[in-house]
């Protein structure tokens, strides 16, 4: 039995400790906001927060996730999360939307650590999140907008 602490709740899972956290979240806990895109930590669609870090859940083994603080897109909260989601909506960022859970999770981590990121900071931090629809320009603008709304300068 593995105990997963997700979105503030503990879940007991009878599963292989090598199973990627992604599939436990999606298939066993039915939290489908976290997406499968590549399975190899190349696209960022599966990004969740583990102890505040923007982890790729497809590359986190269940055993390694046990007992840690995991948050998925469904349960993000706080001023940074609100600013990010708000900016995403204000700027009509989404297109197909499939990558956006991961984009938002990474953006929240970025802004939590760097409240006033430059374009270069954004590029460096968002590098691991692919968007095939090409919404990058708006993602960048939305991160700046979030920073501004949070009291940063950008």
């Amino acid at each position: 039995m593995i105990t997963l602490k997700i979105n503030g709740e503990s879940h007991q899972l009878d599963a292989d400790p090598q199973m990627p956290l992604l599939w436990a979240i999606r298939d066993h806990l039915n939290l489908t906001g976290t997406k499968y895109g590549c399975g190899r930590a190349l696209c960022g669609a599966c990004t969740v927060h583990i102890d505040g870090e923007a982890a790729r859940s497809c590359s986190v083994m269940l055993g390694d996730a046990a007992g840690r603080d995991i948050t998925t897109i469904e349960a993000i909260e706080g001023p940074v999360a609100e600013a990010v989601v708000g900016a995403w909506r204000e700027l009509n960022v989404v297109q197909c939307g499939y990558c956006q859970s991961g984009q938002i999770m990474s953006a929240i981590t970025l802004l939590s650590k760097n409240p006033d990121p430059s374009d270069e900071d954004i590029d460096a931090s968002m590098e691991g999140n692919l968007c095939r629809c090409g919404t990058y320009q708006r993602i960048r603008a939305a991160i700046h907008r979030s920073a501004r709304n949070l009291g940063g300068r950008s």
Partner: peptide, 21 residues
């Protein structure tokens, strides 16, 4: 106008085919 699909696509609610249970 704001996109009609934007709210659900920014909070994890949007249901894609892969999400059907």
């Amino acid at each position: 106008l704001p996109r009609i699909d934007s709210p659900d696509k920014t909070d994890g609610r949007a249901t894609f085919a892969l999400d059907i249970r």
